[in-house]
Amino acid sequence: MYSESDLQDAVTAGAISAQNAQALRDHVSRLRASPVVDEENFRLLTGFNDIFVAIASVILLVAVGWLGNGLRFGAAEHHPAFMSGALVAAASWGLAEYFTRQRRMALPSILLLGGFVGGVAFTLGALAAQLFPDVGDRVGSLILSGVAAMSALAAWLHWRRFMVPITVAAGAAAAAGVVAGLILAAFPGSSTLAFLLMLAGGIAIFAFAMWWDMSDRTRTTRRADVAFWLHLTAAPMIAHSLFQLLDLFDGRDISAGKAVTVIALYVAFGVIALAIDRRALMVSSLAYVFFALYALFEQAGVVGLSVAFTALVIGSALLLLSALWHNARALVVGWLPPVLADRLPPA
């Protein structure tokens, strides 16, 4: 199985002409009765060997981290916990030199990116915890900001070396953490502010994703893969923070009015998803709309089968939307002003 990135790489290398590549895309689109842009392709697996290498990499990284956690220097009673993350980061980079840079294996590359950036973040966080064991919220937020800044730098270095699409999303999330940490250090102790910062960060990453998307409207280059992971990062930040800020969920019970508000927001997310041809927002807020519909069915008296009815309604609606996605997209994009519609993927 070959992805759009593989096809574009083949064109760049001269193995296939751009005309032949486009003919192949058109042929696949006719077979699927679906344009390439609506498929939201991204590279994850090229074969079972990806899964095999990914499992082996996880086992190795866990072993390396475990060994690092048991290291002791001299006669010190306390072992340096930060060594665990440092060894995982070093091992992840070393493995990426072969499995990412040479073999171009998708799933292992994603895991190794997570191992490297996560290892760097864990190393710095553990080191800060050992050096400053008792700190307040203000200093803790500053430390968080510093760790996020170094994680963003690590992601940038990884991107410059390996060009894995998810790396940009990791760096963007870390950059949002830098800003959030600095603001929380100035105004500590506010949960509302934390959710506001998460919402602002999600919107900023969403705008960054749209910049990548608009630079490749037909989604035939690696830029579309970068945009996919950015959307996948921004969506839960926007959905979770927005629902929390609106205080729609208070404990286990939810009123009919709040449930209708949740469903209305989900419909709005659906319209945005259709316009930009990205489904991440709908997937990220699915749990909230599931709980809202469940509450409505329980209040309507369908107590024993409320979960089943909720799953039936949501599953049927999503499958129907998937089947009619192209027609629905054409309708939504047709409502938009030309100056905006011309910058979105063609409907």
Rank of each mutant, 00 (worst) to 15 (best):
D247Y: 12
G334T: 12
A23K: 08
F208K: 01
R222H: 08
A172G: 00
V267G: 08
G189N: 05
L331K: 14
R32C: 09
L196T: 03
W212Y: 15
A239F: 02
G257C: 09
I203H: 05
G304P: 02
A33L: 12
V168N: 00
L246F: 13
G74Y: 04
M1N: 06
D26P: 00
A268H: 09
F122S: 11
A180Q: 08
N20Q: 14
I272Q: 05
F195C: 02
I55G: 04
I59C: 10
A106D: 03
A54Q: 04
F122D: 07
G251H: 09
E77P: 00
L293W: 09
S241Q: 07
A256Q: 05
V339R: 13
S34D: 06
L305K: 11
H27M: 11
A264S: 14
F309C: 13
S57E: 08
P133A: 00
F208L: 15
R103G: 07
F82R: 06
G189D: 07
A13F: 02
F187E: 14
A292R: 11
P165S: 11
L144E: 02
L124A: 02
I55V: 14
D9A: 15
L124V: 10
V164L: 08
A155T: 01
V260I: 15
K258L: 09
D216E: 08
A234R: 05
H240L: 05
A308S: 14
V36K: 02
H326S: 13
A308Y: 08
R30N: 10
D253I: 08
V271E: 03
Q22W: 03
T233G: 05
F73G: 07
T261M: 15
L61N: 05
L293Y: 05
Y98D: 10
L312N: 13
I203R: 10
V332R: 08
G136I: 02
L127C: 06
L107E: 07
S255N: 09
G270W: 11
A330K: 12
A268Y: 14
S285F: 13
G136T: 09
L157G: 00
W212D: 07
T218H: 14
W93K: 03
G115F: 03
D6K: 01
S145K: 09
T233V: 12
A268T: 14
A86R: 04
P236V: 04
M282D: 07
T221E: 03
A89V: 11
L265W: 13
V11K: 13
L144T: 07
A13T: 05
G202D: 06
S57Y: 02
F269M: 15
A96Y: 00
N20A: 11
A180W: 01
A287C: 09
F99V: 12
A200V: 13
L230P: 01
W159Q: 10
A33T: 12
G94L: 14
L45Y: 15
N69T: 01
L107H: 01
V303Y: 08
A287F: 15
A311N: 06
Q8H: 14
V178G: 10
M163R: 13
A121F: 00
I276A: 03
M282V: 15
A63I: 09
S284A: 15
R252M: 15
A175W: 00
A63M: 04
V307T: 13
R278W: 07
S17D: 09
S191M: 12
G181T: 01
A23C: 00
R25N: 04
G114R: 00
L144F: 00
A323N: 10
S284M: 10
